[in-house]
Simulated scan of single mutants.
Amino acid sequence: MSAPSGLINETTKGVYVIAATPFADNGELDLESVDSLTDFYLEKGVTGLTILGMMGEAPKLSEAETTTVMQRVLKRVGGGVPVVVGVSDASDRNVERLSREAMSLGAAGVMVAPVPNLKTDDQVYAYYANVATQLGREIPICLQDFPQSTGVHTSVSVIHRLVDAFPQIVMLKHEDFPGMRKLSQVREQSAAAGRRRISILVGNGGLFLPQEMLRGADGAMTGFAYPEMLVQVCRLFHAGEPEQAEDLFNLYLPLLRHEFQYGIGLALRKETLRRRGAIRSAYVRRPGPVLDATDHAELGRLIGRLEAALG
């Protein structure tokens, strides 16, 4: 695994868990649960945390709440592991402000997704080039490639152009879907051209983690409510034991797949974290999904089957 503290870089690997943002049942920030959730992630052995991402409901937070969450998590972590902060915003001024605030508080780098509706390769490149220029070389950047949410396709050629032009771009969060061939193309074309190799951490709930590791991913950046599985799977792959890693992964796959559902997945993930004692409430800020009685029973059954299989 990568170093326990410091900035993210091209060699970063392991599990950077995407942290949920806990709210009380009345919708207000639950800072005690921010602390307990941070402790939960650390106890499960994660390499680092990523906060204020899309799963962290960042667009639903006020400016003051965003600062509060950053301060609370970074203080709780205390430099024990690196923390990446999501800074995506429609305004490039806000991206810069959030990035500099995050780094001043002790962040290890920032994650940036493109603004929606960029249509061409040149538009995508120009967007990221502007952000990288504004932030400068001192702030490490993780590119978030998540077209299912942003509607923006970041091509392999654009990724290579950005890596060549901006040394501060050190990581790709790979979430294209389907995207495993894209991951292979980034790795193979980069090696063939003698290009700088960057870190690639994968998302999409970790649904394809074994295959992605075999194709050259360095780890995961996702928020599955059993992060210890992601940690163990990545460690086994890095130890040269891919079959054992995939056997372990397969035990969790039914629950992981269930939690991955678009629309309702965040509510399922938060409810699982609540049941595991990591947070006090599974509340998702409006607009957001709400589980019904059947959803709760279904989730409980899958958790029970997992616990039986592990036992």
Rank of each mutant, 00 (worst) to 15 (best):
S91A: 13
T66R: 11
V110C: 15
H258G: 00
Q261V: 15
S104I: 04
G86M: 04
G53R: 04
S149Q: 15
R161G: 13
E65S: 10
R285W: 05
E246S: 13
I169P: 00
S5W: 12
Q144K: 10
A108D: 13
Q189E: 10
T50R: 01
L209A: 03
R215S: 09
Q211N: 06
V17S: 14
Y41H: 12
F208N: 13
A267W: 02
S184W: 06
N26L: 06
A90N: 10
D164F: 01
G300Y: 00
Y125L: 15
F23D: 01
D35L: 13
D122H: 08
T12Y: 06
D292P: 03
G179E: 12
D39G: 12
R285C: 10
R72W: 04
D295P: 00
G109M: 08
V233E: 12
D39Y: 02
L266M: 15
Q261G: 13
T272I: 13
V290T: 14
G27I: 08
P242V: 14
G48E: 07
A309V: 00
D247E: 14
G14S: 10
M103V: 08
R301C: 04
A225K: 00
R93W: 11
V95G: 01
A3F: 15
A90W: 14
L255C: 03
G53V: 04
Q189W: 08
D218I: 00
M171F: 02
P167C: 11
S184E: 09
G203H: 04
T222P: 01
D145T: 02
A113R: 00
R197K: 09
G265L: 03
P178Q: 10
Y127Q: 06
D176I: 08
E175R: 02
L49Y: 07
V163A: 13
D247W: 01
S155V: 07
G80D: 12
H238D: 15
E32N: 11
P210T: 10
R275W: 05
V170Q: 07
L74F: 01
Q211F: 07
D121W: 00
V233P: 03
N94T: 12
M229N: 09
T222Q: 08
M55D: 07
V124W: 03
R285D: 11
A220L: 09
A297G: 09
A267R: 01
L52D: 07
L207A: 15
A64Q: 15
L143S: 02
R100K: 13
L302S: 03
Q211W: 15
R76N: 11
G6C: 10
L310M: 11
P287Q: 14
G80L: 15
G206H: 02
E212G: 00
S157N: 12
A102F: 05
A293P: 00
R305N: 05
I279V: 14
A293D: 11
L299S: 01
S104F: 08
R187T: 14
P116V: 09
V163W: 03
D176K: 15
H174Y: 04
L74M: 07
S281V: 03
L49C: 05
S62V: 06
A282M: 03
L306A: 02
D92Y: 05
E259L: 03
S33F: 05
Q261K: 13
E246F: 02
T21Q: 05
L143D: 02
F23Y: 12
G265E: 01
